[in-house]
Amino acid sequence: QEVTLKMHYFLPPQAIVPKDVLDVWAKKVEAESEGRIKIQQFPAMQLGGRPPELADQVLDGVADIIWTLPGYTPGRFPSTEVFELPFIAAGPEATSKAFWEFTENNMMDTEFAGIKPLGLWVHGPGVIHSEDPLVSPDDLNGVKLRAPSRVTNMYFSRLGATAIGMPVPAVPEALSKGVIDATVLPWEVTTSLKIAELVDNHTQFPDETLYVATMFMGMNQGVYDDLPDDLKAVIDANSGLEFSGFAGEVMAKGDVIGHQMAVDAGNNIISLTPEQIAPWKAPAAEIEAEWIEEMNGRGLDGAAMVEEAKALIAKYDAM
């Protein structure tokens, strides 16, 4: 055994991503390196700090590999937000591959400088989980809603919801006690939070993706550079486009389980028709325009990013 790599993340080991993505990756790398790489996993922030610190921890070498969400540090990975814009994404596998290629084209030496991305993926389509049925955007008026990212907060505030900020683990309690009336989450996340037991209504957008959140698994660049070439090859063989697509696929499978739980609970699952979806999309275009403006203000070409992301999503969705 030559190298031990410390892998740090915020969820417990039994959760879907640690169990079906991170651990699978670690086992494969260990096996293909014939035991010369050992991956030591530290779930649930065991090495200290809070989730928003993970990006800095991998950059500074506090951990060698981390998994986190760019959304935990708003402003730091602004380009990743293009995939989080409402109604831009497709299925998680295609969108994850698009996210990988987009990052390779645009962010490796800028926003991801010092971090070597191993996998870049998104979760499944966001679903609105609410106390009362929500069909039209007007139904959101005054609804206290917890949204997961900066962009979704902008979007739902525009629709008239009262945005409430809180970490994901606080959501079940807040829902059950009426501190919030609704939350948006992909089906996969609702499983462990038992959301289906807490609300009666779920609004989903068939053939469309209300929003997704991006996530990344990354390695300290210096640690990677110091590996002998044959071990670099092992890491490379297990990382990148295909691995990102695989992770996206795992997220989609998780969605099926979460959806089934809501069905079994006898909940009201509202699948909007294309006509019903149309009024949700109009404000989404406004948010997109605003986001482009904001990126231009940062010296990034917002319009080009949106165009490229859309083209890449279309390309992988067609494959």
């Binding site: 540090t73 708003p74 402003g75 602004p78 900066r150 907060n153």
Partner: peptide, 9 residues
């Protein structure tokens, strides 16, 4: 890194 907060930004 231009980090901001979530809601108030």
């Amino acid at each position: 890194y231009n980090e901001t907060t979530f809601l108030l930004q």
